[in-house]
Amino acid sequence: MFHDPVALQVIWNTLLIAVLKIIAGSIAPFAFALLLNEVRRMLFKRTVQSLVYLPHFINWVILGGILTDILSTNGLINQFLGWLGLNSIDFLQSGNWFRAILIISDVWKEFGFGTILYLAAMAGINPNMYEAADIDGANNFQKAIYMTIPAVIPIAIVLVTLSLGNILNAGFDQVFNMYNPLVYPKGDIIDTYVYRVGLQQGSFSLATAVGFFKSVIGFILIATTYRLAAKYANYRIF
């Protein structure tokens, strides 16, 4: 597997995309939950909460088709750019844009999950503390920074650590349904590559070997993070 020049490129793509996804995918729900937590109107809050979880349910097969349509040369996005007087961009044919689209669309699809978790954690914060802070004259911003965030940090650490286990899973379903040969150099990931090779070989063996390899890497990362957190923050993640 390693003496294939394409393999190295593919591994690099996977790492890059996965890491960016982990970063963006950790920040987005966190920030969103903070913002949503500020809302006082229960109905609005609950509605938004329910709606943002929806993209999670849509299959990449469907979503891939929708995105391909919107991002096409004459699709909605390019039409919008045209209004603004900009040139149309070939999103799905240029490797760099393709990567960006992968990350953005994946975050959009999954941030609802993290948001709900963070909101649940925020719901567990004692409201009396907030009242005490009000009496002390804290404004909303200060309340958020000094109270809400610290209460949620433990969960955030857990989520980020566990998601590190996915460092080599850049999202087979998503890439498979959106890629084409032109973006292989930048967009092909380990799983899609293995899938195509596997088709030719007609067996599970390469996929199993790669799966094992991914697990090993993920395990090493999680173990390292655990050690670091235990040593420097005296926090045991599990």
Binding site: D4, V6, N180, P181, L182, Y184, Y193, R196, V197, L199, Q200, Q201, G202
Partner: peptide, 24 residues
Amino acid sequence: GANTPTMKEKWEQLNTLEDQAYLQ
């Protein structure tokens, strides 16, 4: 027929090469 031994190893790579060449 079924894929030959070298095909099992290299066919995917060759196909990708071909696709990209044609599309470009």
